[in-house]
Design a binder for these strands. Sequence first.
DNA 1: GTGGTCTAGACCACA
DNA 2: GTGGTCTAGACCACG
Lengths: 124, 124, 124, 124
Amino acid sequence: MDFIDYLDSRPIYQQIADRYKQLILTGVMEPDEQLPSVRKLAMELSTNPNTVQRAYAALEREGYVYSVKGRGNFVRANDTLKSKQKEELKGKMKDLIKEIQAVGLDPQELFAEAMEEAAEDDRD
Amino acid sequence: MDFIDYLDSRPIYQQIADRYKQLILTGVMEPDEQLPSVRKLAMELSTNPNTVQRAYAALEREGYVYSVKGRGNFVRANDTLKSKQKEELKGKMKDLIKEIQAVGLDPQELFAEAMEEAAEDDRD
Amino acid sequence: MDFIDYLDSRPIYQQIADRYKQLILTGVMEPDEQLPSVRKLAMELSTNPNTVQRAYAALEREGYVYSVKGRGNFVRANDTLKSKQKEELKGKMKDLIKEIQAVGLDPQELFAEAMEEAAEDDRD
Amino acid sequence: MDFIDYLDSRPIYQQIADRYKQLILTGVMEPDEQLPSVRKLAMELSTNPNTVQRAYAALEREGYVYSVKGRGNFVRANDTLKSKQKEELKGKMKDLIKEIQAVGLDPQELFAEAMEEAAEDDRD
DNA sequence: GTGGTCTAGACCACA
DNA sequence: GTGGTCTAGACCACG
């Protein structure tokens, strides 16, 4: 379970944060469930504790997690997270649509083709 | 014609490169047309020549322009560029679709809503 | 009677101490009344005895209780406590007023609005 | 101009951030004015560049500042900052009022006395 | 044991 | 020169 990709352009701390956001939003991790300790996760990913700490701090700032000194980090039960996430993704989609329109292509067509290809990838 | 936005999170050289990609792909700049010289454009944008240089290098590396030593930079014939650009955007769309599916949302629904909002933004 | 809130940003030992300060100052606990034993309270709150110990130490240090070796912890006569507490709160208020003035806002106005909102919260 | 107080319980990076928030909100620093570079400020305060970096990152996250790679950090022109700040301070005031009421004291009286004392401090 | 902060020093991308 | 990320190692507060 080593989800750091050094070829990924995102910084490591953000890859970690994004990974846990996904685990939380998809319900793989349940409210009040404890995240691995900073040091332990750092060992597992063979990265530096500071880097994990930074990821956890970001998760706490954005409301995905609450942290109790001396005890650990825990998943926050927050119903608003999903809608927040949806708005964020919709924003990304809007940006992409505008980029497509700016070069004179048809977003609808590209979307349809991309859906097709994504489905194919899934079958692999 | 000052298209640098310091509040934009993209680095400056990329804003410049992106701007010229768009001008080329939309046909505003025609094949073999000459781009402004590095120094001149740097003056116009009141930025560092190194930055313009980096933008032009990116454009050349991605096949949008060709450079002739001692003469300048020129737009490459854009036959293949359009399809290449389309593939690139389709790739981005596919990544976004996968990200949406990963958190259990419906890409079709989000796409429709984003199209709606993009149209609204245009009307402003 | 479980007054620990893990979402509260204050450390647990302080939540416990604050709770007892309030009980003492409001007269719910009377002078020379005995506090629960460290072990018993730790059980009740399902927390670590060290934590309760630290809370009691803080209470003793600040003069709210006195401890008798081998017997337990007892509420101190609260004659002087009230005025001490008042000075402490007045100090906090003064700091906040200065902070408000430092950014050019009007403390009187903010105070009035905050009183209003606090009253509203109470009605819920 | 050394505004770090090692006796202050707030972490250093936050003292720095708070200081600049105040400078920005009071208009001492104007929109698009450049903040000292990370390294330079670290020297001035004889602290570590990482610590300053952390302060600047917080300022950017909270919308007080924008950062341009290779150029520096600049004050953001944001009209909503003042109202945001006001809400934050009102929240603090509300918390304090509730704390005062919890021990059975009169907020209005304490506020008046604190205002008095704050005025006296100013005359020194 | 836990998280949070800080220092020192390195490397990278960018202008 | 600028900001941003990462490592290594230390210290503190908390449970």
